[in-house]
Design a protein around this nucleic acid. Structure first.
Length: 285
DNA sequence: ATGACATTCTTGT
DNA sequence: ACAAGAATGTCAT
């Protein structure tokens, strides 16, 4: 409850601005005092507020999104990468990732623009801004983020992916699913989240590859390419970018080979925020 | 067919 | 070290 419920609006805004500042100026490694004065708070208060939200202090957060840190993760190799998907990765002292069962929807449905698909959607607050969820009877099909006031655009963006589907809004029904996703306390191997991937064969292959990247870990575009048997980092990047299930399918865990963060459909700031948040979770063990 | 990509590897200074 | 250019696979026009 602590870190995951959307904090008071005011607080959230402050945290958001701090993260933004860190994201833009991480090369300068701004210290706590500097950050605090930018948002007009005293350093102690800011540190507490920030930690409550992100599970890390601003300084740790800064380190977590720095290229050096990313490089170290990449170099360390990732022996866990193989087993994580099928056998649940519950081990002593290990954090659970969010478990999902996925089902691929054939390119047929994709091609017809989602013809005949019934989609329930709704908005819900999340640690990364307002989340837009889209569900079908088979499971979650879409998850997007937006800042407040941008809801209409986010919705349009998502609807554009399956233009022929039928949409109707039901925030209440969405809320239950949203809570399960954003509260790690609700992540149980025996009660996985059902998701549906609607895309081309290649995209689905890539997205499945993404699912096997453990929490708190990173992968490169080329590494992901090897994993799914396509020697085309550029194509991978494209497919990753089209992932409609932000966060659940962890496209934010992919970075350039140098460790630098490259792009993100919903904004680089949000990508850093997610990585920082996850870094906080693996540190919390 | 062609061009646009959330990249990467190879060269030339 | 660093910048610029070619090389790649996939998808939409």
């Amino acid at each position: 409850m602590t870190a995951l419920e959307a904090p008071a609006k005011n607080d959230y805004e402050i945290v958001r601005r701090v993260i933004e500042t860190i994201s833009e100026n991480w090369r300068d490694q701004p210290d706590l005092t500097t950050l605090a004065s930018e948002v007009g708070k005293n350093p102690i208060a800011l540190q507490k507020l920030f930690k409550r939200w992100a599970g890390l202090t601003p300084k740790d957060f800064l380190q977590a999104v720095t290229v050096d840190h990313a490089k170290r993760l990449l170099d360390a190799g990732t022996p866990l990468l193989e087993a994580s998907l099928e056998l649940g990765l519950s081990g002593p002292g290990r954090l659970h990732d969010l478990f999902v069962t996925h089902e691929a929807m054939s390119p047929g449905v994709y091609k017809s623009g989602g013809e005949g698909l019934e989609v329930t959607y709704g908005f819900h607050p999340s640690p990364f801004g307002t989340a837009l969820l889209m569900m079908t009877d088979k499971g979650l099909a879409g998850l997007a983020f937006c800042d407040s006031g941008q809801e209409a655009e986010a919705l349009e963006d998502m609807q554009g992916r399956w233009p022929r589907a039928n949409y109707h809004r039901d925030d209440k029904q969405i809320a239950a699913t949203a809570k399960r996703i954003f509260d790690p306390g609700e992540w149980h191997p025996d009660r996985p989240l059902r998701i549906v991937m609607i895309g081309t064969d290649f995209e689905i292959r890539v997205w499945e590859g993404l699912l096997s990247i453990p929490l708190g870990d990173l992968q490169t575009y080329s590494g992901l390419g090897e994993r799914v048997g396509a020697n085309a980092p550029r194509a991978i990047g494209r497919a990753v970018g089209r992932n409609p299930l932000s966060f659940v399918v962890p496209c934010h865990r992919v970075v350039g080979k140098s460790g630098a963060l490259t792009g993100y459909h919903w904004g680089l700031t949000r990508k850093r925020a997610m990585l920082g948040w996850e870094a906080g979770m693996s540190a919390a063990t």
